[in-house]
Amino acid sequence: MIAYAEVIGDPIAQSKSPAIHGFWLRQLGIEADYRATRVEADGLGDFLARRRVDPEWRGCNVTMPHKQAIVAHLDRLDPLAEMIGAVNTVVAENGALVGYNTDAGGFLEPLARELAETHYFRMARVLGTGGAARAIIAALAREKFVIVLAGRDTGKAQALLDELDPAGEHHAVDLAHFAGPTDFAFDDREGCLDLIVNASPLGMRGQPPLAFDWSHAPPGAMAYDIVTDPVGTAFLAGARAAGHHTIDGLAMLIGQAALAFEKFFGVAPPRHLDAELRAILTT
């Protein structure tokens, strides 16, 4: 028997996590395994009960639809995961199951250079109010962004903002607000940091397209799409055509996986090989 970790969800066959963690394990010469396991909603408790007593199990990554439901089955939460109200990484620590959220750190990682600078103002237009948006909203709020959260249900969007950053001066709008053109005259954005984030599954293979008119993006704004299939989304293509810098979903996926990998296996992954890993994930 060898040590192992895994990713759980339903469905799970599409997950890129085994390819990512498997690549790092091979490169580091670690004798361990990382696998994908389909776990249905009504089987979550039984799954964790079995893993809890498995001495070889190091933990699991958690994807939809379990990121919030799994909280009730854990012994304790990391403070960030508790604040977000969602867990994407469970680690076996001295017989206890501990929940973490590495999505927030993974999302911020490719923005590190910009976040290290001082800005007069930071604004993020975040599109989507699903599970992934929770970590993104929390991460941006901690970095002093004013957030405009767009969803099909503005009441849900406002409730999410109120829950995750009740003291923030954020705004909820209808997703359709950004679909058509605007003639809004943006002010001088020098010294400001503007993000446009697709935190929804729209634009993913098999999902409807995301309708966003780039006249809503201030000059110099950065476009960030968390969708990974395809990596080159129409949203990002539209951003580049409008002259904006772009960040694709693999950046967040690899970043959050790196934080989880170190918790599972006790060593940092070889990030200098990210280009090689990206090539594997896009073939």
Rank of each mutant, 00 (worst) to 15 (best):
I8N: 06
A13Y: 15
K16N: 06
S17W: 09
A19K: 12
A19V: 03
F23E: 00
F23R: 03
G29T: 05
E31W: 03
A32Y: 10
R35A: 12
D46M: 06
L48Y: 08
E56L: 15
E56C: 15
R58K: 15
N61P: 09
N61Y: 05
V62R: 04
V62Y: 02
Q68D: 00
L74I: 02
D75S: 11
R76W: 11
D78G: 08
A81G: 05
A81F: 04
I84P: 00
G85Q: 10
A86V: 01
L97N: 01
L97K: 04
V98A: 08
V98S: 11
G99Y: 04
N101Q: 12
A104G: 05
G105V: 09
G105C: 08
G106V: 07
G106A: 06
P110T: 13
L111W: 13
A112N: 11
R113K: 15
E114L: 12
A116R: 15
A124T: 02
L127Q: 02
T129N: 06
A132N: 01
R134K: 15
A135E: 00
I137H: 03
A139S: 11
A139V: 04
K144Q: 14
I147Y: 04
A150T: 00
G151W: 00
R152E: 06
R152N: 10
K156C: 08
L160F: 10
E163K: 14
L164D: 07
D165L: 04
P166M: 15
A167G: 14
H170Q: 03
H171E: 12
P181C: 08
F184N: 09
F186R: 09
D187R: 13
D187M: 10
D188M: 08
C192Q: 15
L202K: 05
R205H: 15
P209W: 03
L210G: 00
H216Q: 10
G220K: 12
A221P: 07
I226C: 03
V227D: 00
V227W: 03
D229A: 15
D229P: 01
T233Q: 11
R240A: 11
A241E: 09
A242Y: 04
H244S: 09
T246V: 13
I247M: 05
I247C: 02
L253H: 09
Q256D: 02
A257Y: 07
F261T: 01
E262N: 07
E262S: 12
K263H: 07
F265C: 05
V267H: 08
A268N: 12
R271K: 12
H272R: 11
E276P: 03
